[in-house]
Design a protein around this nucleic acid. Structure first.
Lengths: 201, 201
DNA sequence: TAGCAACTGGACACTGTGTCCACTTACCCT
DNA sequence: AGGGTAAGTGGACACAGTGTCCAGTTGCTA
């Protein structure tokens, strides 16, 4: 079984020219993410591979052909949601985009991710906390971006600080702050902004 | 079914005088944690309730009587491991104990927790990442402690900052830094120390 | 339009869960 | 002392979800 890309579900094999994906396969691939989102948002009972397959109108085997487990599907869903924010980071207006001081850009990134966490709470909850998170394209992107900010700010050992600064964005932590502690998104963003300025200011 | 304390597995009912725990129950309760640790450290296959019950020489029903799932057992195990560090924080010598400036105390706490994460990696890995973490006595203790440090340092909105500063200690994040990134414990502690001083210094 | 490789989907065996209840046993009371 | 009783015990059970497998199907290419 060939390794598959987390986001697209397509097989990964860089070198050789591979026969085009068949039309029915492509169609099903598109169906899966929609179906997964529906199942997650419906929110009755646990999100299982079986449910997603049924919602997509395909068989279990077909689903397993692309995604090894529910977490991967949720991760793919999250990735697709984060594309827009990534675009804004690369080429949008400051302070999120290039041009502003590193501390402001980090604060803006924090705000952007909090907005996402807020908007897609059920999806983030479905992506089981755990190692999968660090393998997503989205996480890789944040890492890369924060790293350049740290370097720009002249902070020592950016590679070790990186994940420490991203840790507060873990859906777990955010959920805990929102639900259990009852903090408002604004208050969380303010606290994160303080972190950004103290760490990079 | 009465709620049970995460650590001791004893029923929680503050007000009324409750009949003493029976001797056989107490014996089994002690057996469970030992057995759980053995199963976790053996590390062949997943840690299941069934395995722990067998290792303890008791039935599944008896195990479920005290702990609702594996995560709770692991949490209890972790709590018992963190008692010593908690003692040092309360009444040990500075900088971990009272007397040192808040930033130094936070840095010392970071180091202490990293040492624990390092020493008991398999156990921390067994406690499934997720909401259980925030319900443990240990986490509550760190929260309380860090809160007093934040207040002492005069930081704004300590209640919102709290969990942000504890987030980097999540076993997930630590595992990721150690295994995937290959960072040394010392390097991680150094980065955490920087965080402590920038945030409270 | 024939051949074939990719794709499909449901059946299957399996693992772990959580509940239930008849039996056992430690402790309290007289 | 020993009987009553409620707490404690443990294995059987029904169930949910997993991941694999393979015979059948279908889209693509030559």
């Amino acid at each position: 079984m060939p390794k598959r890309d987390l986001i697209t579900g397509l097989p990964i094999d860089r070198d050789q020219a591979r026969p085009r994906e068949r039309a029915d396969a492509a169609r099903n691939r598109a169906l899966v993410l929609d179906a997964a989102e529906r199942v997650i948002l419906a929110d009755d009972g646990p999100v299982t591979m079986d449910r997603i397959a049924k919602a997509a109108g395909i068989g279990r085997g077909t689903l397993y052909r692309r995604y090894p487990d529910v977490a991967s599907i949720a991760a793919a869903l999250v990735d697709s949601r984060e594309r827009r924010l990534q675009g804004a980071v690369i080429s949008g207006p400051p302070p999120l985009g290039p041009g502003a001081p590193p501390a402001d850009r980090l604060a803006a990134l924090y705000r952007g991710v909090v907005d996402l966490l807020e908007a897609h709470t059920p999806i983030y909850r479905a992506i089981s906390p755990g190692p999968i998170r660090y393998a997503t394209g989205a996480y890789g992107f944040w890492r890369l971006h924060v790293r350049t900010l740290l370097v720009a700010a002249g902070t020592p050992d950016p590679d070790a600080l990186l994940d420490l600064l991203l840790a507060p964005l873990s859906p777990d932590v955010y959920q805990h702050q929102r639900r259990t502690l009852g903090l408002s998104p604004d208050r969380i963003v303010d606290a994160l902004t303080l972190v950004a300025h103290r760490m990079l200011g």
